[in-house]
Amino acid sequence: MSQNPPAGNPPAPAAVKKPGQPEWQDAAANPRAAALKAAFGGRVLDAKTYAGELTVWVEGAAVAEICARLKAEGYTYLVDIAGIHQPKVADKPFALSYLLHHWDTNGRLRLKVEFADGVEVPTVTGVWKTANWMEREAWDLLGIRFAGHPDLERILTWEGFNGHPLRKEFPIEGIDTGAAIYPDTYPEGGGPVKPKETPHA
C-alpha cells in the first residue's frame, strides 16, 4: 500500500478485524470457576478460558476430591485424561489435563494439574470407572504414577519395556530394548546398531 489513494475517493472503510488466534482470558469471574474457588479455596490456583474452553488449575493432591464433588454436581462423564511432559517448566515438568463433561448442560471443564517428576497424583478411578485405562496410559507413556490405582500396569507398550516414550528426552527413533528380535541389526545386550548389509549392491 505504498501508493496514495487518488484525491477525491471516499475514505477506505475501517479495517475489519481479521480473525486470528484467540487469546487466553482470565476467568476468575466465571460462575463455575468461582464456585470451585469458594469450595476449595487455595487449592484452586487459577482459571482461564481459551477459545471458549474453561481451564481451572488445581493442586495435584486435591484432584480426586475436586473430581468427586464435580461428579456429584453433574459432571458424570470423564472425556479424557491427557498426560503432558513440559521439561521447560523447571519445577513442574509434568501435567495432567482432565476433561469433564456436564451431562445436563453439555458444558465442559478442564482441570489442570502440574507437578514435579516422581510426584504421585491421587487416582480418579474411584470417581469414574473410565479413568482406569486413561491413567494406565499416562503411566505407560509418560511415567506419571497414580496413588491408589488398582492396576497400574503398562498398556500400550509391553511389560518389561524400559522407558516412557512420550517424555521429550525419549528419541523418536526408539531405543534399543535389548530384545533379540533382529540380532543381526540389534546386537544382543545393546550397543551400537550395526549398519544394514545390502546383499544386491
Partner: peptide, 10 residues
C-alpha cells in the same frame, strides 16, 4: 505457528 495454548475438539 500458534502461540502457546491448549484446545480440545471432537
Amino acid at each position: 505457528r500458534p502461540k502457546p495454548a491448549e484446545v480440545y475438539f471432537s
